[in-house]
Design a protein around this nucleic acid. Structure first.
Lengths: 201, 201
DNA sequence: CGCCGGTGAACGTTCGTTCGTTCATTTAAA
DNA sequence: TTTAAATGAACGAACGAACGTTCACCGGCG
C-alpha cells in the first residue's frame, strides 16, 4: 500500500523497529493512564526517545491514536477470518463465540476498547474503522446462524444481539484486569446456544 | 446526609437552582465534547457563569465529575427498584429488561456511560459507585430469575449475562444518537426469554 | 454591617507542536 | 576505493495556547 521499493538498508530496518517500539509504548501508556491522560512526552520518555523524534515518526497525536485503532481492528479481522472456516455450523458458532470473547476479554483489548470508543465518538475516522469491524462481525456470525436453520431475514439481528452479549461480558471480565476463566467462557457459550435454540446440539 | 437545617431562604433557593444548572450544563458538555475535552471554562461559559463561581459550587473538576456519576447511579437505582414490584415473575423479567434497556439506550446515558467508565478505570471512588450499581442489578434480576425456576446457584451468572446483553445492546443503539425503537426492545426481550428457556411464556 | 454568591484577571503548569541543529548512514561522484 | 554530498533519525529548548485553580475585589440580600 505504501513503498514501491522496500529499501533493504540497515537504516530502514532500525527505523521500522523504532516505529514499532513507539506504537507499543503508546499502547502501554494508553492502557495504564488512559488516552486522555497520556501526553506525547509520556510516550517519548517511556520509550527512551525525544519528543522531536516522536514527531519524526508520526505527524501528530491523533495520527498515532488512529494508527493504534487501525492495528486493533486489523487484529480483530484476523481473529474473525480464522474462525470462519469450520466444518459443522454448530461447532463454528461455539468457536466464534469463544474466540471473540477471549479476544475482547483480554485486559489490554478491553481497556483499549473503552478508551478508543470514547475517542471514536468525536473522531469520524476511528468511528468508520469500528463500523467496518462491526459489519464484518455481524456478517460472519449471521452466516453461521443461517447455517443453523435461522431465516436469513432474522439472522443479522440475532447475530447483533449475540455480539452484544459477548462484548458486554468481555468488557465486564476484562476491565477487572483478570484473565477470563474457562467458567466464563462455558457459561457464555451455553447462554448463546439457548438464545439460538440450539441447546439440543 | 448533609444539612440538619434545610434553610428555606430565597437566597438558598437560587443557590440550589444555580448548582443544578451547573450540573446539567456540565453533563451537556461532557456528552457533546467528552469529559476529557471539556474544561472548566467551557462549562462556566455555557452556563453563563464565571469560572470562579463554578468553584464556589464545586471544590474541583474531579468532584464535579464524581457528583455526576453519583447522580447517574442514583437514577439507575430508581429505575431498578421501581421495576422490582411486579406480580408475575415472567412479566417482571420482561419489564426489567425493557426498563433497563430503555434507560441505558438513551443517548445521553449511553455516552455518559462510556465516558464515566473510562474515568472509573483510574478513579476508585467512581469505580466503587459502578460496582455497587452492578451488584444491585445482579441481585434484583437474579431474584426474578430464581422465581422462574432457575436454581439459586446459577441465577446470578445468568443475570450477569443478561445484563451484559442489555448493556451491550443499549450502547450499540444509544451511541448512534438515535432513540431506541420498539423493534430493538422486542427482539431483545425475545432473545433473553429464549436464553432463559422461558419462551413458552 | 456582615455575609456570601459572583466576577475575571492572573498564576503556575502542562499540553501539542515546531524549530534549529547535530551526526551517523546512505548515495553518488571521482 | 576514496571522498564528498545528501539524507533523515535524533535531540531538547522553546512556543503559544489551554488547562485547573486561586485570589482580591464587587454588590446585593439577610
Amino acid at each position: 500500500m505504501e513503498d514501491g521499493e522496500p529499501k533493504r538498508t540497515r537504516r530502514d530496518a532500525t527505523t521500522r523497529a523504532r516505529r514499532a517500539l513507539l506504537i507499543e509504548t503508546a499502547i502501554a501508556c494508553f492502557v495504564e493512564q488512559g488516552i486522555a491522560r497520556t501526553g506525547m512526552r509520556d510516550i517519548a520518555k517511556k520509550a527512551g526517545v525525544s519528543v522531536g523524534n516522536l514527531y519524526n515518526h508520526f505527524p501528530g497525536r491523533d495520527d498515532l491514536i488512529a494508527e493504534i485503532a487501525r492495528i486493533e481492528t486489523a487484529d480483530l479481522a484476523d481473529v474473525v477470518t480464522q474462525v470462519a472456516r469450520c466444518a459443522d455450523a454448530h461447532d463454528a458458532i461455539d468457536s466464534f463465540v469463544e474466540s471473540y470473547f477471549l479476544y475482547c476479554a483480554d485486559p489490554i483489548s478491553a481497556v483499549l476498547t473503552v478508551e478508543i470508543t470514547s475517542e471514536a465518538l468525536r473522531n469520524p475516522a476511528i468511528d468508520a474503522l469500528f463500523s467496518g469491524s462491526r459489519a464484518l462481525l455481524v456478517d460472519t456470525l449471521a452466516t453461521l446462524i443461517t447455517g443453523c436453520g435461522w431465516r436469513e431475514t432474522q439472522a443479522p439481528a440475532q447475530a447483533a444481539l449475540i455480539l452484544d452479549t459477548i462484548e458486554g461480558s468481555a468488557l465486564r471480565v476484562g476491565l477487572t484486569g483478570e484473565k477470563p476463566g474457562k467458567r466464563d467462557t462455558k457459561a457464555l457459550i451455553s447462554f448463546v446456544r439457548r438464545a439460538l435454540a440450539l441447546e439440543g446440539n
